[in-house]
């Protein structure tokens, strides 16, 4: 049981010029990133964008090839590099879909091991979640179904109450009712013990309402980082006669365009103030909002445009 406050324990994350390469191919390419402590961050990107490599590097599972990761908090101070650093890594919990668990051991042993390694472990929460996810304690880990194995990972991640907890697609193997249970448990426990949480996913629409900040990666690089509500409503679609649409959108960053006969639909990035909207309406153009999921798709499309 801990009496520490959020200001003391929640970890902030900073990466400076962080590069990780696999056989010379960059998985992360000079990434400069900051994650504020005590918030729920979404780490969004397509498959192969570098999300998992970033998660593993933050957790100290990998050494950067260039640049560095710095973790800090009130109680351990700033500037801890996680690689081979027990002080930092005991405070970071990374849950991956593979689970990183010993398959031949019974579930009970996996729980006991986590409890012994995790300084902020809450066994009451663990027991409660094991019941709710209906995970059998005496079964061997390798005998669990994919869904139960994912659920076990999620329970270990939540009950560790680590000041930096990263779920790397760890809930993809779970069915919809179990994922819903995970989201509810996460929000309830986060409200009780705020900490820095990173949800790495490409299921944008399913988690977006739970996030406060999003980081979008593509090809190992940062596409954008922003409060999620800033991204909602940041894009707009302009529809109307092609010439009028082109004239109106000439000053904007164009994300996508489609043509159907004389009508054109252009998706742009940028805030449209009321004066602009009035001008567009007067020119016979229709303006519509663009959802976060759609914006994500445009920003990470093969010919994507930087935000």
């Amino acid at each position: 049981m801990t009496t520490s406050t959020l200001e003391d324990t929640a970890l902030s994350v900073r990466t400076e010029n962080l590069s990780v390469r696999f056989g010379g191919v960059p998985a992360l390419d000079r990434l400069d990133l900051r994650l504020a402590p005590g918030k729920i961050h979404g780490l969004l990107g397509r498959n192969g964008s570098g999300k998992s490599t970033l998660a593993a590097t933050l957790a100290g599972f990998r050494r950067p090839d260039e640049g560095r990761v710095l973790l800090g908090s009130g109680d351990i101070g700033a500037a801890h590099e996680p690689y081979e650093n027990a002080v930092a890594t005991s405070r970071v919990c990374l849950i991956r879909e593979s689970g990183d668990l010993v398959g031949a051991a019974p579930v009970r042993r996996a729980i006991d091991l986590a409890a012994s390694l995790r300084p902020y472990w809450d066994s009451e929460l663990a027991g409660n979640l094991m019941d709710r996810f209906e995970i059998p304690l005496n079964k061997k880990v390798q005998k669990l179904s994919r869904g139960k194995k994912s659920a076990l990972g999620v329970v270990l991640g939540l009950a560790s109450r680590a000041p930096l907890t990263i779920f790397d697609e760890s809930y993809l193997g779970m069915d919809v009712p179990s994922r819903t249970l995970f989201y509810d448990a996460l929000l309830a426990d986060y409200a009780e013990v705020p900490r820095t949480i990173v949800l790495s996913t490409h299921l944008v629409s399913e988690v977006s309402a739970m996030l406060e900040e999003v980081v979008i990666l593509d090809n190992g690089r940062l596409v954008t980082q922003a409060p999620v509500d800033t991204l909602r409503g940041r894009g707009a679609s302009i529809v109307g006669p092609a010439a009028a649409v082109d004239e109106f959108t000439s000053g904007f960053t164009v994300l996508a365009q489609e043509r159907l006969g004389g009508t054109k639909s252009t998706t742009v990035l940028g805030d449209l103030d009321p004066a602009l909207v009035t001008r567009a309406t007067a020119a016979g153009l229709e303006i519509g909002p663009v959802g976060l999921q759609e914006l994500f798709v445009h920003l990470t499309a093969p010919t994507g445009v930087r935000a």
Partner: peptide, 17 residues
């Protein structure tokens, strides 16, 4: 705000805002 966030499954900071 926490009840609201839990009920609608949204971020508590969003509800607070």
């Amino acid at each position: 705000t926490n009840q609201y966030a839990a009920f609608y499954r949204i971020n508590p900071a969003t509800a607070a805002k």
